[in-house]
C-alpha cells in the first residue's frame, strides 16, 4: 500500500492514524522531502530515538584516551627533555587529546550514520524512486 501526499498536514494526520492503529513504524517506509522535528516527535513516540549518540560517545572517549596515551608513550619511548618540561606534560598533551576527541568523535558519528542508515545504498544511487517533494507512506505487505 502506498499513500502519497503533497500536503504535510494531511500526511501527518494519516500517519498518526496508522500509528495509532497499532502498526509499528518499523513495518513501513516513510519518505519525506526534508527533516522535520514534529514528525520525528510523532514517530519517536512509537519507536526508539536514534542510537547514533553512542557512536559519538565511544568515538570521543577513544580519541581522548588515544591522545593522552599516545603522547605519553612517545615521551617515554625515547626520553628526551625538551623545553625543560616534564615527560608527561599534561597541559600540552591536553591539546592533542582534545583534538583527537573531536576528530574521533566526529568520524565515529559519521560512521554511525552510514551504519545505522545503511548507507551508501548502491542500488539507489542511480535509480531512486522519484517522489520529488511528496510525503509518502509505504506499508509493506505481509505475505
Amino acid at each position: 500500500m502506498e499513500f502519497r501526499f503533497t500536503n504535510r498536514e494531511q500526511f501527518m494526520e494519516k500517519l498518526e492514524n496508522i500509528l495509532e492503529s497499532g502498526m509499528s513504524p518499523d513495518n513501513m517506509k516513510i519518505v519525506m522531502p526534508n527533516p522535520d522535528h514534529e514528525i520525528e516527535h510523532l514517530v519517536e513516540h512509537y519507536k526508539s530515538p536514534s542510537k547514533l549518540k553512542y557512536f559519538t560517545l565511544v568515538g570521543g572517549l577513544t580519541g581522548c584516551l588515544t591522545g593522552y596515551a599516545f603522547t605519553a608513550w612517545t615521551a617515554i619511548d625515547w626520553q628526551l627533555v625538551t623545553g625543560g618540561k616534564p615527560f608527561f606534560s599534561w597541559p600540552a598533551y591536553t591539546v592533542i587529546a582534545f583534538e583527537l576527541t573531536i576528530l574521533f568523535g566526529a568520524l565515529a558519528s559519521f560512521a554511525g550514520l552510514l551504519i545505522l542508515g545503511k548507507l551508501p545504498r548502491f542500488s539507489k544511487m542511480l535509480n531512486p524512486e522519484n517522489y520529488a517533494n511528496e510525503y509518502v507512506i509505504i506499508i509493506e505487505d505481509e505475505d
Binding site: 623545553g83 625543560g84 597541559p91 600540552a92 591536553t94 591539546v95
Partner: peptide
Amino acid sequence: FFSQYIVIWYGN
C-alpha cells in the same frame, strides 16, 4: 581557565 594557565605554565 586553560587558556590562561597554559600560557603561564609554558612560558615559565
